[in-house]
Design a protein around this nucleic acid. Sequence first.
DNA 1: ACCGTAGTACTACAGATGGAGTGGTGTCAA
DNA 2: TTGACACCACTCCATCTGTAGTACTACGGT
Lengths: 191, 191
Amino acid sequence: MRRNPERRSALLDCAIDVLARDGARGLTFRAVDVEAEVPTGTTSNYFPNRAALLTQIGGRIYERLQPDPATIAKSLEGPRTRARVEALMYELVDRVSAFRTGYLALLELRLEATRRPDLREVLTTRIRADVDANIDYHLKSGLPGDATTVKLLFLAMNWLIVERLTLPDLFGEDEIHDLVAAAVERIVPNQ
Amino acid sequence: MRRNPERRSALLDCAIDVLARDGARGLTFRAVDVEAEVPTGTTSNYFPNRAALLTQIGGRIYERLQPDPATIAKSLEGPRTRARVEALMYELVDRVSAFRTGYLALLELRLEATRRPDLREVLTTRIRADVDANIDYHLKSGLPGDATTVKLLFLAMNWLIVERLTLPDLFGEDEIHDLVAAAVERIVPNQ
DNA sequence: ACCGTAGTACTACAGATGGAGTGGTGTCAA
DNA sequence: TTGACACCACTCCATCTGTAGTACTACGGT
């Protein structure tokens, strides 16, 4: 088992790309080796088996999905209004959509999680932390709405991103924009 | 190429189960043969290749997801209130969750669709028809809310089902129930 | 300056699996 | 008799995993 952490992260990043591009079917040690342009067998040396690779991918995606500090700082500026929530939602949808491979890989992992209890546990923990952090942030920053508001936005935005990434022709870009606006308008109380 | 339609449907139903249980990775002609308890090679005889099998699975799932006429008739009874919409949402979430394998298989297909334009087209057409039918039904039946209401409910309910089926420990059953109620309360206008 | 050791990169291979697809044979019904 | 289908068998093939062995590099000791 090799320990070089940069290389491990690089392998995980390539594994995310493979997972998004070729699906769970295409995710093999060899495929990751090829994607990372490292010699055959390298990924085998870094991960004892496929299950370990999958759970570590889950952790890695969430590492990369966190907004960078600059974005967080910026989001703390401005008035605490519904319009501000709307702006945050556009930012969220675009940030997640921009990491397309990560989001698609995460969906693959969710499906894998129905078969792998350990992976399910990892994902549940991570996502619960994420939801809680969002609720916490929302309440503390004085934005309008309660915990339920945040959860409902979470539900709607997630599926909106799914539609955008998997069946882009179902809702066009304009309609996606309008749906974000409508979701905020109806779910978030006015002031 | 064999034509017996009952057998074809039976094979597709088994393919749905395989897809939900073992994922895209496990969906092979042989696995379907085993699941359907038919001789090796049968599925090969009915579908020219994996791609055709996948697109036909997509069609089959949507056939089976439609509510039966009795359910539709029942849903036309009663007053046209927000409480009625809430009841319909509980029915929807439970009906879809009950066809667990179908929903999970559909998610697998969505991910496959990112790689297969023909599958993407099939799914887009089907789902658009489904969304339009729901909007149409909602408006014609005089339930409160407009097309956007229906779409927002569609977004929230879909992801709620995803959570329930893939990470059941994230939201408990009680919380899921509450979220359905909250979604209706906030998204659907009062009368 | 030399040597030994540890950790890692790279290479190669053993071993095994499992699937795709096709062609042939028997059966039944029109 | 013919056509369609169920069933069966067989060939070919494409990988994948996991590990063992070799080479390289850095570092610390003498």
